[in-house]
């Protein structure tokens, strides 16, 4: 029994080894002595010898937190498998923010290399070039010039080059 978390695209596992006398939790199998107490407006987390101030917020399957002066956002459970799936395939280029298509630089059956410009989009008053995440062939362009899109929309799908 464990919790799956995704830190910067890498799936990680946290599980419980012991509850008493203190918590002993494992990260990818490595055990840590852990305790938590409530601070003034934050949680004070002790891991081994180190103590951290932690602020947290849950949002669906994500945990946002500030710890040790740095901010992180991690997905857990279902989100891990979804992300791993998308990462492994890499066939689809999704919008990670809403915007509008300014220019389309590719068409169906175009052979592209990782980093090639696929689209130019505009979001929050900035033009951004969307590039191919890997080598491949454009299977379909799902948007047209001047078309608005939402966060998460499929923009371009790729397929493997035929041998």
């Amino acid at each position: 029994m464990s919790i799956e978390l995704n830190l910067d695209g890498t799936p990680r596992t946290v599980s419980v080894a012991a509850r008493k006398p203190g918590w002993r939790l494992t990260v990818d199998g490595t055990p840590y002595t852990v305790s938590e107490e409530q601070g003034e407006d934050c949680v004070l987390l002790t891991v081994g010898e180190r103590r951290y101030r932690v602020w947290r917020a849950l949002e669906g399957n994500r945990v946002h937190l500030k710890i040790g002066g740095r901010t992180f956002s991690l997905g857990y459970e279902e989100e891990v498998s979804a992300a791993a799936h998308a990462g492994a395939a890499g066939h689809e280029v999704h919008a990670d923010m809403p915007g509008v298509v300014v220019d389309v630089h590719c068409g169906p059956d175009a052979i592209v290399s990782a980093g090639d410009a696929l689209l130019v989009i505009e979001s929050m008053k900035m033009q951004i070039t969307i590039t191919a995440p890997r080598d491949g062939v454009v299977a379909m362009v799902h948007v047209a010039k001047n078309q608005p899109f939402e966060k998460g929309n499929l923009l371009v799908s790729l397929r493997d080059e035929e041998a």
């Binding site: 946290v14 939790l25 081994g48 951290y52």
Partner: peptide, 23 residues
Amino acid sequence: ATDEAAVLLAAALATEELRRLID
């Protein structure tokens, strides 16, 4: 390694699932 574990542990402890596992 410890700081990274702390990030993961702090995040996991925010979830009901880990709390339930501990209990």
